[in-house]
């Protein structure tokens, strides 16, 4: 075990992983975090706590992660390169590990111009691939980026993002390979709507042997409405929403769009369960945490596996279980 996180245990055991997401509030509202967390408890193996998502200032990811631990969830602490330099990042990795955070997702971050502080100076001291290699070095070599020794290495299961739909398409899988080489243990993909392209991308990853080196969780976001589908298609960078998704929602009777959106998400999850090279699903139910129990039930991913606390931490099996 590299980190001993629940997510790592689920994936190593060969179970189909199911992770969720929780967006921290735009304020110091602890109760809001707790409320969202309660919907997710027992439904997911780990919950991504977003880091100033869409470049809007929110309660910090590590702080909301600690609240989620308090609520009995396992956080996946998201960290973007936009807001921190290498000193702050390494300090936060140590602090997170000290507080029992065991998963960390390394991201570039949306550009600051999209958020509520467009005049900010983006840090971008290192990129997301370099953040992966930095944390691996801290964990596996007990060394800071500088090469200096760490007293008690952090225990972190290292995550990375992949967008199968950004361009240049034929080279996306090579970037995935670079993240794996840098030290990613698991991958969570961008929200997937174009299943055809996703199948192609996973096949390329399989052919390159990448899925034997890393656990890939496919990103699924249920559409809440036709408006949301159109917005995702036209306004979200790197998002690929095919016309058939829009048309299917268009064909729904008034008041049934959300239901249809959930149905479509569950169909995707069914396919991912069977897809070679896919180790789980990352469900991003954006501001829809209360729907997660219903979706998890419908998707047939309950109950979630549990592990005894005394699972040995020192097991070093590097290959994903099939």
């Amino acid at each position: 075990m590299k980190s001993g996180s629940n997510l790592e245990k689920v994936l190593r055991a060969g179970d189909f992983a199911f992770t969720g997401e929780l967006g921290p509030p735009r304020g110091a509202n602890v109760e809001e975090v707790r409320k969202k967390a309660r919907f997710l408890k027992g439904m997911v193996d780990s919950v991504n706590i977003t880091d100033n998502q869409t470049a809007m200032v929110r309660m910090s990811s590590w702080a909301a992660s600690l609240i989620s631990i308090d609520e009995g969830l396992e956080p996946n602490y998201q960290m973007v390169c936009r807001d921190r330099n290498r000193l702050a990042m390494q300090a936060d990795v140590l602090g997170a590990s000290a507080h029992g955070i065991r998963n960390l997702l390394c991201l570039s971050g949306d550009h600051q111009q999209f958020g509520d502080h467009p005049h900010a100076k983006g840090v971008f001291d290192i990129d997301s691939t370099q953040l992966i290699s930095t944390i691996r070095k801290m964990r596996d070599e007990s060394k800071f980026m500088s090469g200096q020794k760490i007293d008690t290495a952090p225990k972190i299961f290292i995550g990375a993002a992949a967008n199968p739909f950004a361009e240049p398409f034929e080279w996306r899988v090579h970037r995935l390979a670079k993240k794996i080489e840098a030290g990613a243990d698991f991958i969570q993909t961008q929200c997937i709507y174009n299943m055809k392209k996703m199948r192609e991308w996973v096949k390329m990853a399989n052919d390159m042997g990448l899925t034997e080196k890393v656990y890939i969780l496919a990103g699924v976001t249920p559409m809440k409405s036709l408006g949301m589908a159109r917005y995702m298609k036209n306004n979200v960078p790197g998002m690929d929403v095919p016309d058939e998704v829009i048309n299917r929602l268009k064909g729904c009777k008034k008041g049934t769009h959300a239901k249809e959106g959930i149905k479509m998400a569950c169909e995707q999850i069914e396919e991912f369960k069977e897809m070679k090279g896919i180790a789980g699903v990352h469900l991003m139910a954006i501001e829809w945490e209360h729907k997660v129990p219903e979706i998890a039930e419908m998707a047939g991913v309950l109950p979630r596996p549990t592990f005894d606390d005394d699972t040995p931490d020192d097991k070093t099996d590097d290959t994903p279980a099939e």
Partner: peptide, 9 residues
């Protein structure tokens, strides 16, 4: 980004 492109391309 030194190992790009990012997901926004």
């Amino acid at each position: 980004v030194l190992n790009g492109p990012c997901g926004g391309s």
